[in-house]
Simulated scan of single mutants.
Amino acid sequence: MPRRFNPTHWQLGSYWMLLAGVGFAIMGACVKAGAQRFTTGELVFYRSAFGFISIAALIWWQGKPLQTPLLDMQMRRAGVGFGALLLFFYAIAHLPLATAITLNYTSPMFLALLSPWLLRGEHRAHGRQRQIFNICVVGGFIGVCLLLQPVFYRDQLLAGSLGLLSGLGAALAYVHVKQLGMQGEPDWRTVFYFTLLCTVTSGLWMLFDRITPLRWQDIPLLSGLGLSATCSQLAMTRAYRTGHTLTVASLAYSTIVFATLIGVIGWGETLSMHEVAGMLLIIGFGVLSTRQTHT
């Protein structure tokens, strides 16, 4: 039976996205450190393989069933999510990093546009409340632009278009996550199928690209990458399953705030006034969005 959502639980459910934001920021730091030695395909593989092995071991240990009547939807979610990831990596390779991240983080705005049609089973906000949700999503994105300062050039139209498509693909993947949750699919099963497809596909990618010999010194970094990615995926899946979609979308911008703080602490980066203003906008609109789940 499809699950019925209790609006009084939405705010708490949405806060899982903050935990996911911390994890994704740590994952980004691991990717930045690992990129000096490993290719993109290898990093995707190790990130996915760790999660797949961990979830598979948990499923085997607890005797959880993998059979699901929603296998087609699970594979669509995994395929769309992996496609968005590939587009994002292409954008990273051909655009300034800040520009690629900004384009990928258009996903909350696509969610705001798509949710009235694709998430009809969720309690829908109306009138002023719906307008405030949309303002929070757009306002948070303005904060992202202030913080990252994306730059575009004329010869980057293709890469920019694909980067924008990565944002749309991510939004569609989150819609699938929400729909699976509304049908009663557990978080671990959704993450299992996603990591399974990503592991197999990125493993094939490695075969045609490059395989870097592993050293003992690489284990802590790759373990941190896999652990942070797995915990983030589980937390994000739970956030979209149990929280209000647009509130979770607003809180998704927190990843950039946490990543910026890690850069300040770990790499000694400094913040300008407009970057501080961008962080405050993201935080402010995120708080405003969570308050709307009470009304």
Results as ranks from 00 to 15, higher is better:
residue 265 I to M: 08
residue 133 F to R: 04
residue 257 V to W: 02
residue 254 S to F: 15
residue 73 M to V: 02
residue 181 G to W: 01
residue 240 Y to F: 15
residue 285 F to S: 11
residue 204 L to K: 00
residue 197 L to T: 07
residue 84 A to D: 00
residue 110 F to S: 09
residue 275 E to F: 07
residue 103 L to E: 10
residue 148 L to S: 07
residue 295 T to Y: 13
residue 284 G to S: 03
residue 72 D to F: 03
residue 159 A to I: 02
residue 183 Q to T: 04
residue 283 I to V: 09
residue 53 I to G: 06
residue 233 Q to W: 10
residue 50 F to G: 05
residue 52 F to T: 06
residue 129 Q to Y: 09
residue 199 T to A: 07
residue 88 F to L: 12
residue 218 D to H: 00
residue 284 G to N: 02
residue 166 S to L: 01
residue 108 P to F: 15
residue 281 L to W: 08
residue 71 L to C: 02
residue 135 I to K: 03
residue 71 L to F: 03
residue 37 R to P: 03
residue 27 M to L: 15
residue 37 R to S: 09
residue 58 L to E: 00
residue 126 H to D: 15
residue 43 L to N: 09
residue 10 W to K: 12
residue 62 Q to N: 13
residue 40 T to V: 13
residue 114 L to W: 14
residue 84 A to I: 03
residue 196 L to E: 09
residue 61 W to V: 04
residue 50 F to I: 06
residue 208 F to G: 04
residue 42 E to D: 07
residue 136 C to L: 11
residue 56 A to V: 00
residue 75 M to A: 10
residue 229 A to F: 10
residue 135 I to P: 01
residue 71 L to M: 10
residue 179 Q to W: 09
residue 5 F to H: 13
residue 262 I to S: 03
residue 171 A to Q: 13
residue 85 L to Y: 02
residue 128 R to H: 12
residue 173 A to K: 01
residue 137 V to C: 07
residue 242 T to I: 02
residue 54 S to K: 04
residue 14 S to H: 00
residue 104 N to H: 14
residue 226 G to T: 03
residue 33 A to K: 00
residue 44 V to S: 05
residue 253 Y to P: 04
residue 213 P to R: 10
residue 164 L to N: 11
residue 250 S to M: 10
residue 30 C to S: 09
residue 27 M to F: 05
residue 79 G to D: 13
residue 202 S to Y: 07
residue 154 R to I: 05
residue 60 W to G: 05
residue 106 T to P: 01
residue 57 A to H: 05
residue 121 G to T: 12
residue 128 R to Q: 14
residue 254 S to E: 15
residue 83 G to S: 07
residue 15 Y to A: 06
residue 127 G to N: 08
residue 92 I to M: 14
residue 126 H to R: 15
residue 182 M to P: 05
residue 267 W to H: 13
residue 4 R to Q: 14
residue 71 L to W: 06
residue 41 G to H: 08
residue 191 V to I: 10
residue 188 W to F: 11
residue 209 D to M: 07
residue 166 S to H: 00
residue 4 R to V: 11
residue 258 F to Q: 12
residue 240 Y to N: 08
residue 195 T to P: 01
residue 257 V to G: 04
residue 270 T to V: 11
residue 225 L to V: 03
residue 159 A to Y: 05
residue 9 H to L: 13
residue 161 S to E: 06
residue 4 R to S: 10
residue 97 L to Y: 01
residue 72 D to Q: 11
residue 108 P to I: 11
residue 196 L to G: 04
residue 189 R to E: 09
residue 282 I to W: 06
residue 29 A to F: 05
residue 44 V to I: 14
residue 170 A to H: 08
residue 284 G to M: 04
residue 175 V to P: 02
residue 203 G to M: 13
residue 259 A to R: 01
residue 197 L to S: 10
residue 206 M to I: 10
residue 72 D to E: 12
residue 119 L to A: 00
residue 229 A to M: 14
residue 140 G to M: 09
residue 67 Q to W: 04
residue 174 Y to L: 14
residue 198 C to A: 12
residue 49 A to G: 02
residue 150 P to D: 15
residue 63 G to V: 03
residue 82 F to W: 08
residue 179 Q to I: 09
residue 97 L to E: 11
residue 179 Q to H: 14
residue 164 L to Q: 11
